[in-house]
Structure formats: structure tokens, C-alpha cells
């Protein structure tokens, strides 16, 4: 086996000069590496944006809102207030609390016979500010709180609530806090995180509720046929960086095959096949490193637009590894070929 005495630092210098050289063929790969690195993440961001839009639409339609109530209307159930309010302590639950349709009242600003709903502050956190919440369908949104007056002359501080999704059904009612003495009602509502798996969480939440009377049942406000989060997590598009890595590796192989004359210059002037292979391996690693760096930079720039940045980064790094490995496999025979046939192969 032929040997040489290349120093590793000098070989690394050769790698840098061959790749980071605008006049060299590997420079084309460097350009491709940046495009693929950023492009793969741009594609992931576009997919995340589509998911965010879909989730927003489904959220408005009641996605991941679970109502707990009596299984049989003839067997009323009472749900313990503390157990319902404490559902917020479970990971994946955004807010939860009891609701009770109290009555209807006449308001000077809203008209007559307006339904009034009593609810936990854990379900409507704005209630903690000492205000009542006016449904968004009852009054245009306002920047400041206002004084709401009943026809009997009772005054209360009020705030126009933001539009609530289907399932909470409070856009046409006035929401007031449950009285401290209310320890149970017949209904509990939990709003789950949009990325949570409702089918997994619902039995857990049901088990945490303390009830008296009949049996309770959990009713989702909306039951789409396809869970967009599951569809997103299993989408083939997430593997685009791997495909780009494969294409990049094959392109590396093609470019290196067009450089046999250059490799012959190394081999015929004393560079061993092993050092030539190391040179090509390091060149490919540098190019794959550039695609990985580009992808990570794109993730950092777009992190708030990507649903799963860590997983996306992992796949991008796997794409870079695919580039390196494919590039090596597509190239590895070249340095071990007869140096004279390499010189003729141009």
C-alpha cells in the first residue's frame, strides 16, 4: 500500500482551499448546500404555517374543548369545583373550570333578557380582575373596561371578552364569577392545548373529576375526522431535508467524478489513496457542515414560525449526515482507483 507524509493540518488546508474557492467545482456544492439547508427549513416553516392556519380554524370550531356533564339527563351529576378547577394543573390543559347558567338579566347597555353565566376564574382568567365579561357578540370590542348597569341600578365593572370558540358558547352572554359558596355544578369545561392529544387526555381528566350523583361523560365540542397535529407529525414532508441530503450527496459524487484529473494530480505527486480518501471525506464533511449550519441558522431565524423546531433541527442534521454519507459512498472508489487511469479519465 502506498503511503505519504501529509500532515493533517496541511490536508485540512487543502480541503478549505478546494471547497472555499469560488473558482473550484466544489464551490458549486457549497452554494447547493446553503440553498438546500435554508430551503429545507423554509419548507418546514411553510408546513408549520399551514398547520397553524388549520389549527386556528379548528380551534374556532371547538377543537380540543371538552365538556363534562351527566351521561343521562335523568340522572343529574354534580362535579366538585376544586377537582374541575385543578384540571389546569395537568399538562396539556390550558384552562378549565365549572360553568353554571345562572339567570338572565336586563342591562341598560345590552338590552333585556341577556343570559348570565357563572364560571370559574380558572376557565375565564379575566374574571380575576374583578370584572364581568361581556360576550363579543353583545358589544363591539373596547380598549378599556366600562361600567355595566342593570335596569335595577346595579353597577359592575365590565370588559368585552374576546371571541370564544364553539364549545364555550359565551359570545352572547355575560360571564360572572361563581360565588365562593358554589362548590359544585353540573358542568365542567376544559380547554386543551391545540397540540394536545384529546383522545389521550380525556380519560385522564375524567378520572380526576370528583362527582356525585349519576355518571359523567366527556363530550368534545368538535370531532374532526383527521387530527391535524397527528397528520402534521406523520407528514412525509418532514423528511424533505433527508431527500435533499441524498440529492446533495449524489451531486457531490458527480462533482467529484468530474474532478478525477485533480485527484490524479494529488495521487501522482505523492499523495496516497488513503490521504486522497481522507481529503474527499473532509471536503464532503465541510459541505455537509455548511448545509447543517445553514439549516440551523434558518431554524434560529424562523423558530417562532416552526411548530417543532427541535425535531426539525434533528431532521436537518440527519439530512446533513445523509449528504456526507451519500457523498462518501458515491465517491469512495475514486481515490482507490489506479492513479494512472485517474489521470487519463478526464
Amino acid at each position: 500500500m502506498d503511503t505519504d507524509r501529509w500532515r493533517l493540518t496541511h490536508l485540512v488546508r487543502e480541503v478549505a482551499r478546494n471547497v472555499l474557492n469560488a473558482r473550484s467545482r466544489p464551490a458549486l456544492l457549497l452554494f447547493l448546500a446553503v440553498i438546500f439547508g435554508v430551503g429545507g427549513i423554509g419548507y418546514a416553516a411553510a408546513e408549520s404555517h399551514a398547520l397553524a392556519n388549520q389549527l386556528a380554524a379548528e380551534q374556532a370550531a371547538g377543537r380540543n374543548i371538552i365538556s363534562f356533564g351527566a351521561l343521562d339527563p335523568n340522572e343529574p351529576v354534580l362535579i366538585d369545583r376544586a377537582s374541575c378547577d385543578q384540571l389546569t394543573e395537568i399538562a396539556g390543559v390550558t384552562r378549565a373550570g365549572l360553568v353554571q347558567l345562572a339567570t338572565s338579566r336586563d342591562f341598560l347597555q345590552l338590552g333585556t333578557n341577556v343570559p348570565v353565566l357563572a364560571a370559574s376564574q380558572t376557565l375565564f382568567p379575566a374574571l380575576r380582575d374583578g370584572v364581568v365579561l361581556v360576550g363579543s357578540a353583545l358589544r363591539p370590542p373596547a380598549a378599556t373596561d366600562f361600567t355595566l348597569a342593570t335596569t335595577e341600578g346595579t353597577l359592575m365593572q365590565a370588559r368585552v371578552n374576546h371571541a370564544e370558540p364553539t364549545g364555550l358558547n359565551t359570545n352572547s352572554v355575560v360571564v360572572v364569577p361563581l360565588t365562593p359558596g358554589t362548590t359544585s355544578t353540573s358542568a365542567c369545561i376544559a380547554v386543551l392545548d391545540q397540540r394536545a392529544d384529546a383522545s389521550l387526555l380525556t380519560p385522564i381528566l375524567t378520572a380526576r373529576l370528583h362527582t356525585a350523583g349519576g355518571q359523567i361523560v366527556a363530550q368534545p365540542a368538535s370531532s374532526p375526522a383527521i387530527d391535524p397535529v397527528k397528520a402534521y407529525l406523520s407528514r412525509p414532508g418532514q423528511y424533505v431535508p433527508l431527500i435533499l441530503g441524498l440529492v446533495g450527496g449524489l451531486a457531490t459524487g458527480l462533482v467529484n467524478r468530474s474532478r478525477t484529473s485533480e485527484l490524479a494530480a494529488y495521487r501522482l505527486s505523492g499523495t496516497s489513496a488513503r490521504s486522497s480518501a481522507l481529503l474527499l471525506g473532509l471536503e464532503t464533511a465541510l459541505i455537509a457542515g455548511v448545509t447543517a449550519t445553514s439549516a440551523v441558522a434558518a431554524i434560529l431565524a424562523l423558530h417562532d414560525r416552526i411548530q417543532t423546531p427541535l425535531a426539525t433541527a434533528c431532521i436537518a442534521l440527519a439530512g446533513a449526515a445523509t449528504w456526507w454519507l451519500t457523498g462518501i459512498l458515491a465517491t469512495i472508489d475514486i481515490p482507490f482507483r489506479n492513479a494512472i487511469s485517474l489521470a487519463k479519465d478526464r
Partner: peptide, 13 residues
């Protein structure tokens, strides 16, 4: 050390 027919060189260097 082998000097081949034609020009085997690192063309961009």
C-alpha cells in the same frame, strides 16, 4: 513522481 500526458492540475488553484 509521475508527470502525466496532458495537464492534471487543480485548475482553480
Amino acid at each position: 513522481a509521475w508527470v502525466p500526458q496532458g495537464s492534471n492540475a487543480l485548475s482553480g488553484r
